[in-house]
């Protein structure tokens, strides 16, 4: 019997390993997977620490590991993944953009956070393009990214917004770190983490500080029909409830209810990140981003984390990571208080 259990939390694997309703062979398989997952997690953590230490000690430009491989496949408007492999020499503009921006996301995570790919172990970053027909979406399926071409009216090619590419890849980072669930408060946090790092990546690419940045999500995928109606983005981290958002969001936890779509409730932590980064000033990835990254990756997985718990992590990290600058903690603390957490 083959067993592929690596996205299942260790405690669940261990529970299955003791489940008497399963066969002895199945229980052994789950026990082996749990054991392997523990060792693998230790290797990943050690690798992350080594990368960070090397980044601090070695001359700039030297990396511990080679960047992850980046592959692109073409679905040719079908829905079978991954599709036909696309050579790096392709003339297809969507494929070219996907190669370039996916490599850039890998560079962003490596250079800013010392992370080697989504799993911090060099996992190949695979993307499929031209998915389905006039498909108005992009998604992460647990293994790879997938991008639609848009219908040409509401949306255009989903690879045109590099924050969307950063958003999808960050779902991979979350899957291999905090393992946040996709419902209720953890779901809102999961979506917010992808918006936060997608937006930060877009700012990093443009070398913008927090004042120069527009904080819009998906600005470059809005189609002519949407723009004509005044919708300039999917979401706006600086003003989540704004009329120019295609999908306006809540701005305070008092508006939160269980069962909300994570793409809606994410407005609350999105707004907190914006407020913290703006108050700290400078480039978002230098301080606020580093705090949010540590809150996501420096702890054991916590699939059902609530927004308050994540907020408190960032409060603690703001103090421990920037002990000489109390204004960082003050900014983070005020940001969360402003959104009700």
């Amino acid at each position: 019997m083959s067993c592929q259990c690596f996205i299942i939390p260790t405690n669940v694997l261990e529970r299955f390993a003791k489940d008497k309703t399963l066969s002895q062979e199945q229980r052994k398989c789950f026990a082996d997977a749990a054991q392997f997952e523990k060792h693998w997690r230790q290797v990943r953590t050690a690798h992350g620490k080594l990368s960070a230490a090397a980044g601090a000690i070695l001359p700039s430009g030297i990396q511990v590991a080679a960047p992850p491989a980046v592959t692109v496949a073409d679905c040719n408007h079908g829905t079978t993944l991954p599709g036909t492999p696309v050579p790096a020499s392709t003339a297809d503009a969507t494929a070219k953009r996907t190669f370039v921006e996916t490599r850039a996301v890998a560079d962003f995570y490596q250079n800013v956070f010392g992370r080697n790919s989504v799993d911090n172990a060099g996992k190949t970053l695979m993307s499929s393009i031209h998915f389905s027909v006039k498909y108005n979406n992009a998604f992460w399926n647990g293994t790879q990214m997938t991008y639609g071409d848009g219908d040409g009216n509401i949306f255009i090619d989903f690879t045109k917004a590099n924050d969307v590419i950063g958003h999808e890849l960050t779902h991979g980072v979350t899957q291999f770190s905090a393992q946040l669930a996709y419902a209720n408060e953890a779901g809102g946090l999961n979506e917010s983490i992808s918006d936060v790092f997608g937006s930060m990546f877009r700012q990093w690419r443009a070398n913008q500080n927090v004042t120069q940045a527009d904080w819009l999500i998906g600005k470059e995928i809005m189609g002519p029909g949407a723009v004509a109606k005044g919708y300039t983005c999917l979401r706006d981290m600086a003003n989540p409830a704004a009329k120019h958002c295609l999908a306006p969001q809540p701005t305070n936890y008092s508006q939160y209810k269980n069962g909300m779509d994570p793409h809606y409730s994410s407005g609350i932590p999105n707004f907190a990140f914006y407020k913290a980064a703006k108050a700290i000033g400078g480039k978002s990835w230098e301080k606020a981003g580093k705090i949010w990254y540590a809150a996501l990756t420096d702890f054991a997985p916590r699939p059902n984390m609530k927004m308050k718990a994540f907020a408190n992590r960032t409060r603690t990290l703001a103090k421990t990571m920037f002990p000489g600058d109390p204004s960082v903690f003050a900014a983070v603390n005020s940001a969360w208080i402003a959104v009700g957490r």
Partner: peptide
Amino acid sequence: GLAGFGGPG
């Protein structure tokens, strides 16, 4: 979906 089709508002 990424755009939150059919969500509140």
